[in-house]
Computed example of a mutant assay.
Amino acid sequence: MKIVMFYHSLLSDWNHGNAHFLRGIVQELKQRGHEVQMFEPEQGWSLQNLVKDYGEEKIQELQEYYPGLETNFYNLESLNLDAVLAGADLVLVHEWNDHDLVKRIGQHHINKDYKLIFHDTHHRAVTEKASMAQYDLQHYDGVLAFGEVIRQIYLKENWTRKAWTWHEAADDSVFYPHEKGELEGDLVWVGNWGDEERTAELHEFLINPVKELGLKAKIYGVRYPQHALKSLAEAGIEYGGWLPNYKAPEVFAKYKVTVHVPRRPYVEALPGIPTIRPFEALSCGIPLISSPWEDAENLFTPGKDFLVAQNGEEMKKHLRAIINEPEIAEELVQHGLQTIRQRHTCRHRVNELEQVCSELGIVNSKIYLNAEITDEK
Rank of each mutant, 00 (worst) to 15 (best):
E352T: 04
H119L: 00
T258W: 01
N245G: 15
S46V: 13
T339A: 13
L360D: 08
E359W: 07
V350Y: 12
H260T: 00
G361N: 03
M315V: 03
I367P: 11
Y65G: 10
N80A: 12
D53R: 04
F306Y: 11
R161F: 08
L332S: 09
D113H: 15
L92S: 04
V267A: 10
M132Y: 02
V308C: 06
F21D: 07
S46G: 08
V210R: 03
H167V: 09
S9E: 15
Q310P: 01
D98T: 04
N364E: 12
E42P: 06
H203A: 00
T258P: 02
G221N: 02
S78Q: 15
K52N: 10
L92V: 05
N370P: 05
P67H: 08
Y54H: 15
H94F: 10
E201S: 07
R343W: 03
G55T: 10
E148D: 14
V102T: 03
Y74A: 11
N324W: 08
L11D: 09
D195C: 07
F6I: 01
A217K: 10
P225V: 03
N208H: 00
G147L: 07
I153Q: 06
G236R: 07
P274S: 14
T258Q: 03
L232E: 14
E77C: 09
H167M: 09
N245D: 10
N245C: 14
H119D: 06
P274E: 10
Y154W: 05
G221R: 00
N192G: 00
G44T: 12
R161C: 07
N192E: 00
P271V: 08
A329Y: 14
E35A: 15
Q27S: 14
N311T: 00
Y140T: 07
G87F: 15
G236Y: 03
I105P: 08
L360E: 10
K230N: 11
I323K: 11
F6M: 03
R349K: 15
P249E: 04
P271F: 06
A309H: 01
E250N: 14
V356Y: 02
E325L: 15
A86C: 12
L299F: 05
L288A: 03
V350T: 12
T339N: 13
A88C: 15
V210Q: 01
L229E: 13
R341Y: 13
G55A: 12
V350G: 05
L10F: 10
Y266A: 10
N18M: 12
E376F: 00
P274V: 08
L76S: 14
H16E: 12
F118V: 02
A145C: 14
L319M: 11
L332W: 11
R32T: 04
A125H: 00
N245M: 14
H344T: 06
L332C: 07
V91E: 13
A253Q: 11
E212C: 00
Q226C: 03
R347E: 06
Q63D: 01
E280P: 12
V126D: 09
K112L: 03
K230W: 04
W45Q: 11
I328N: 12
P265K: 10
A86S: 14
S290Y: 04
A235M: 08
V174G: 11
